[in-house]
Simulated assay, not measured.
Amino acid sequence: MTKYKANIVPLNDSKIGTSAHGTATFVEDNDKLTITIEMFDTPANTEHWEHFHGFPNGKSAEIATIAQDANHDGFVDLMETESVSGTTMVPFDDAPENMDIPHDRYPVANAEGHFAYTKVVPLSKLQANFEKAFGSKELQLDKRVIYIHGVPENLDLPDTVAGMVGDFNAHVTLPIAVGKIERID
Rank of each mutant, 00 (worst) to 15 (best):
T42W: 00
N154W: 05
H114M: 10
S60P: 04
I184F: 07
N57V: 05
T118F: 00
A111M: 05
T46F: 00
L78C: 07
K137L: 01
T42Q: 04
D167I: 03
N57E: 11
A6P: 08
K5D: 02
A177L: 05
M79K: 01
V9M: 05
G179V: 01
L123V: 13
N30C: 06
H171V: 13
A109E: 01
N57G: 13
M39Q: 10
K15G: 11
L174K: 06
N45K: 09
T81V: 12
D93N: 15
H21Q: 13
T87I: 13
P122F: 13
G135Y: 12
V9K: 14
M79S: 10
A170E: 12
G54F: 01
T23R: 08
F40S: 15
H21A: 12
I37E: 04
L174S: 03
G163H: 10
I148M: 06
P10M: 11
S85W: 01
G86D: 02
D41M: 02
E131H: 07
A61L: 07
E62R: 02
L123I: 14
Q140L: 10
E138Y: 03
E153I: 14
G163R: 07
W49D: 08
T160V: 02
T160S: 15
P43V: 08
I101Q: 02
R144T: 00
L126R: 14
A177V: 03
Q140Y: 09
F168W: 11
N71H: 08
D167G: 15
F134R: 10
T42E: 10
K137Q: 06
H114S: 08
Q127K: 15
T65A: 11
E50D: 07
L11G: 03
H53E: 07
G163D: 03
K180C: 06
T34R: 06
N110D: 15
N71I: 10
F130I: 05
Q140A: 11
G74V: 03
V178K: 00
A128Y: 02
F75P: 09
S60L: 04
T2F: 02
T118N: 14
K15R: 15
Y4G: 07
F115R: 01
G163T: 08
P175A: 13
D13Q: 14
T173D: 03
T42N: 12
F52N: 06
I146E: 00
P96Q: 06
E153L: 15
F40Q: 14
D104M: 05
P175H: 04
I101K: 01
T65V: 12
G22Q: 01
K59R: 14
H171C: 06
T34S: 12
P158I: 02
I184Q: 07
A95D: 08
N154Y: 04
